[in-house]
Design a protein around this nucleic acid. Structure first.
Lengths: 309, 309
DNA sequence: GCGGCTACATCGTGAAAAGCGATGATTTCC
DNA sequence: GGAAATCATCGCTTTTCACGATGTAGCCGC
């Protein structure tokens, strides 16, 4: 009984709705055409196409110089159509904001980076893009996974399909209770049999401890914890010394701490390497690209930890 | 510095967003094409067009048998795009509902019609279209105006550009306190000098009173009110008689009222004519068309008020 | 390493549509 | 009745659409 309307949603075109809105506001096809930069006949055809799509007239054309008027169907279409156009505008805005650098970014991190590098990166990122949505996660399973992260800080390489940027070499330092060792560098073999506190065997910790062993020292690990403050309290209390990367030492503000002394090791251990990773072969958001740049700058701006000295 | 994106909102096409959504769900262009009834190359071009419109890739194509994946930009576009598609669907639904007869209808009316005809019309309309939005207005300025009304009941013609349908002839009857007149028709001249209560001089009231006068009777109007119940109470109380149209009498349930008697007049006055009006030259909604039909049926179904007898 | 497989991109083609300018039809106003 | 205004329609050109066929790139198994 009704005319068979194929009525596929996608038969509606935003262009036609925009034309309709212009006509409704201007009152005539001609003025709407002028506003939109079309000719009158084009508007006429666009409205005709829209009317074909919705299956009925949306304007009454009284003829003569009187303005056209919405039909009841036209009111329905225009009401919903304006909404649709507003959403389309919102889409375009969201795209523009995205391209300007707003949007969401998911970053994986770990303790030292969280303490020392990330705060500066986050601050600069938020200063540049107040609307951005930065999410950090510090979950650190045994093997780091990029998963859905945009960026991942990690002290080592990740095997996945990943690109990386080396941010800095982070040399290992010996932290001891003041007075335990004389000022200045400490020979590595002095750690043989010495009581030590240390991080759990995650990240590059096993690798570091092997390096110590290869250097001829077999320290006694008497306590492991991932919490730096606890670790340093134990050092301060005399439970043992600790070999920590410079970032961790600096993060805890140790150099100015009276109860502790910091020493280089001789020979020095190979430094921990801090990398920034992201998935290879995937388009990165402007925000992620900017974050990579900023992270590199922040890392470069850290006082060079007497690298390789 | 950025590529100049013309970025007109209307460059985005719903078809392309639908293609994008299908690709995102299916994982490959080919399956999306199959779902939508296109070929793979068409989908490829649609996505390319969308990417041109938003100014960047929305999918990473890893190559080989691995599924494509949304880029960050793609997430933004798809997120907003799904919303847009949902709105488009809502538009199509609204149009369908409108065509099925739902929607809004504004009806102007007046007392007698409100009492006798409209309740049936409204009931049937709501039974047929439970979702419809019926609005009545009984404001009755001296000259009735269609204004933004879809339908207007009025006991007379409206001068505007209006089409009309005569619903019924509504004969005038004399309502008196029981015992005032003997049963049966009453000669018109018996009203000469008789105390009468009456409606205010709106609608067809002046026209009716002139007809009485032309018939040779000069009644004394001792009270005017638009409220039928008050009017009939006054008749019952003996203040005077009333000449009322059949619809008004019937609406008040008078025939079964012991205190009142109803008489035809001889000669009978020309009946009040009840019209239904709507603006000429304007497309009417399915709901309005149905309402017109129903009103005509309801009017025809009223017991013929001893028409012209 | 080398086809085979799968998947997206691209090319050429014919059909459809968009947009334009000119013309026609209809109504209002003078 | 004629001038003016307005939308519809008609050719026409240019662009776009969709298709099928072909090109190209990354995986996989042998």
């Amino acid at each position: 009984m009704c005319v068979v309307t194929l009525g596929l949603v996608t038969d509606i075109e935003l262009r036609h709705l925009a034309a309709m809105a212009a006509v409704a506001e201007e009152g005539t096809f001609g003025r709407a055409a002028a506003r939109l930069g079309y000719t009158q006949s084009t508007i006429s055809q666009q409205i005709a196409a829209l009317e074909r799509a919705v299956g009925g007239q949306v304007f009454d054309r009284p003829g003569g110089p009187r303005p056209v008027r919405l039909t009841p169907l036209g009111s329905v279409v225009l009401g919903q159509g304006r909404d649709l156009l507003a959403r389309a505008e919102a889409l375009a805005d969201a795209v523009d904001r995205f391209k300007a650098g707003d949007g969401r970014i998911d970053i994986g991190t770990f303790q030292s980076v969280s303490n020392v590098i990330l705060p500066s990166v986050v601050r600069r990122l938020r200063d540049e893009h107040p609307g951005c949505d930065i999410r950090l996660s510090e979950e650190e399973p045994d093997q780091p996974r990029i998963g859905d992260l945009d960026l991942l800080f990690y002290d080592g390489r990740v095997d996945d399909d990943v690109e990386h940027l080396k941010l800095l070499d982070d040399p290992y330092l010996l932290v001891a209770r003041a007075g335990t060792f004389p000022d200045g560098p400490v020979p590595l073999e002095r750690l043989d049999g010495a009581p030590m506190v240390a991080w759990p065997l995650t990240c590059s910790q096993p690798w570091m401890e092997q390096a110590v062993t290869r250097g001829g020292a077999r320290p006694r690990i008497v306590f492991r914890t991932a919490v730096n403050d606890t670790l340093l309290s134990m050092v301060r209390a005399g439970l043992g010394s600790a070999v920590l990367p410079w970032l961790a030492v600096r993060g805890a503000g140790v150099p100015s701490d009276g109860g502790l002394s910091v020493h280089e090791l001789r020979p020095s251990l190979p430094p921990r390497e801090i990398y920034l990773h992201w998935r290879a072969g995937r388009t990165r958001s402007p925000l992620a690209r900017r974050a990579i740049d900023i992270a590199a700058e922040v890392a470069a701006g850290l006082a060079p930890p007497s690298a390789g000295a």
